[in-house]
Computed example of a mutant assay.
Amino acid sequence: MADVTWEDPFCGEGNNCFRLGTDAAGNGYIAVNGQEDHPLTDSIAALRTLILSIKAGAADHLL
Rank of each mutant, 00 (worst) to 15 (best):
L63R: 15
A56K: 08
I51Q: 01
I44C: 08
K55Q: 13
L62N: 07
M1G: 14
N15F: 15
D3Y: 10
N27P: 00
L20D: 04
E7C: 07
F18M: 09
G26A: 10
D60V: 11
A24H: 01
G57L: 10
L47G: 01
T5L: 13
L47K: 00
W6S: 02
K55R: 15
P39I: 06
F10K: 11
K55D: 07
R19Q: 06
Y29P: 01
S43L: 00
C17F: 07
C11Q: 12
G12P: 14
D60I: 13
R19H: 00
D23P: 02
T5K: 13
A25N: 10
L52C: 11
L62Y: 05
E36I: 02
A45N: 14
L52M: 15
E36G: 04
E7Y: 06
G34Q: 08
D23L: 04
K55I: 07
G26M: 05
W6K: 02
L63T: 15
T41P: 02
M1E: 13
I44G: 00
P39T: 03
P39C: 08
E36L: 03
V4Q: 07
Y29V: 01
Y29S: 05
D60E: 11
N33A: 15
T22D: 05
A25V: 05
E7K: 05
S43H: 14
A31D: 04
R19T: 15
A2L: 09
L47F: 04
H61L: 15
T22H: 02
A56N: 12
T22N: 00
N33E: 14
T41D: 03
I51E: 05
V32T: 10
N15C: 14
S53Y: 08
S53V: 03
G21F: 04
A25Y: 12
E36H: 07
A31F: 06
N27M: 09
L50Q: 05
L50F: 10
A56E: 06
L20R: 02
H61S: 14
P9I: 10
G12H: 06
G57M: 05
D37G: 12
R48I: 10
S43Q: 13
I51G: 02
D8A: 12
N15R: 13
W6E: 02
L63A: 14
T5C: 09
V32P: 06
L40F: 04
V4S: 02
A45L: 10
L63W: 01
V32N: 08
L63F: 13
L50D: 03
L20N: 03
H38W: 01
G28R: 03
A2D: 08
G14L: 14
T5G: 03
A56M: 04
A24F: 09
G28P: 03
E13Y: 12
G57P: 05
H61V: 12
G28F: 00
D42A: 08
N27Q: 01
T49Y: 11
A46I: 04
G14R: 11
A31P: 01
S53A: 11
A24S: 13
D37H: 13
N33C: 03
D37S: 11
G28H: 03
I54H: 07
Y29T: 06
